[in-house]
């Protein structure tokens, strides 16, 4: 009897492995293996049979002016856009989580709607809104300010990208916070109110700590998303003026597929992004894990 029971357990274990095998294999073949390849590729110079091991791709990064410009842009987007967006999303989720509020569903749908547009599509909408004689400039003139050549000025172009990003992603992050808030029992708030906690205290002492895992998740997702920013840089500003608003991913794409392909150098740059994403996620996890 015992033997038979163990046989069944064993059978179930094997069936479990069979169920998850296709998904796991796909991730190993199309994520981990290419990553390994990228790392190997980045340590080679020359191509085909003449390839030799070297770190020349990495020393070249240090001297690359375009890379520095793109790195600056990407970090600038990251530092400015991610905090603004996450705080805004958290604020909106907090407002919408009030059960006495009317039209909650309608507000939520409207704020989330930007996420239904493709990255290319909304880039086009913003490109047209901020065109030289476009709507935004017309409004600026109407209220007595001067129009701005949004895509001819480096800071203005970066500003447009940030505005566009905030528009597209705030609702997305808000849905995660709302979901997190709904898992917090409303009676916790009621009880703390009876104990005399102010809304500000409730927010910092109840909401933030209980929402920490969700905040961590959205912070990691946004950081990794911003470091990989591509569609907006290509379609909204075309990386311009010059290369003033180009992102790292856009630059990597250009040196791999637009100019004469330099796969090894591109691989070195992409390993650099990998290290950044991994480091930042690691730091965020450490900070997020800390118990008060």
């Amino acid at each position: 009897m015992k033997m038979k029971r163990m046989g069944i357990e064993r059978r179930y274990r094997l069936i479990g492995w069979a169920f998850l095998l296709p998904a796991a294999l796909l991730i190993f073949i199309f994520c981990f293996y290419p990553m390994l390849q990228a790392i190997l590729l980045s340590f080679k110079s020359g191509s085909g049979v003449n390839a030799s091991w070297s770190i020349s791709n990495y020393t070249r990064i240090l001297k690359d002016k375009t890379f520095k410009q793109c790195l600056f842009n990407t970090i600038f987007y990251l530092i400015v856009q991610v905090p603004i967006m996450l705080i805004l999303a958290l604020m909106l989720a907090q407002l919408l989580n009030n059960p006495k509020l009317r039209f909650r569903g309608a507000f939520r749908t409207m704020i989330f709607l930007p996420c239904a547009t493709s990255l290319v599509s909304y880039s086009m909408i913003f490109k047209s809104l901020f065109a030289d004689k476009g709507l935004i400039n017309m409004i600026l003139e109407q209220i007595g300010l001067f129009p701005i050549s949004w895509f001819q000025n480096a800071w203005a172009a970066r500003f447009v990208i940030i505005i566009a990003l905030i528009w597209r992603w705030t609702g997305y992050n808000m849905v995660f916070y709302l979901a997190g808030l709904q898992n917090i029992d409303y009676s916790v708030y009621e009880a703390s109110r009876i104990d005399g906690a102010s809304p500000r205290q409730q927010f910092f002492k109840i909401t933030i700590p209980l929402l920490k895992p969700t905040i961590l998740l959205t912070a990691i997702m946004s950081t990794s998303g911003t470091l990989q920013l591509f569609d907006e840089s290509v379609n909204l500003t075309a990386g311009g003026p010059g290369k003033a608003s180009m992102t790292l991913a856009h630059y990597i794409f250009n040196i791999s597929f637009v100019e004469t392909p330099k796969f090894n150098y591109a691989a070195a740059l992409s390993v650099f992004i990998l290290v950044c994403v991994a480091t930042l996620s690691f730091i965020q996890m450490k900070v997020g894990d800390k118990r008060d």
């Binding site: 796991a24 290419p34 990553m35 990228a38 470091l227 790292l248 691989a267 992409s270 990998l274 996620s281």
Partner: peptide
């Protein structure tokens, strides 16, 4: 254990994978 290894794949930026994938 396998699940936590697979979760690491979430951190891999697609830009880093696209060249080897294309070559493959």
């Amino acid at each position: 254990i396998l699940m936590s290894i697979l979760l690491l794949a979430m951190m891999l930026p697609f830009v880093a994978l696209m060249i080897p994938l294309f070559k493959m």
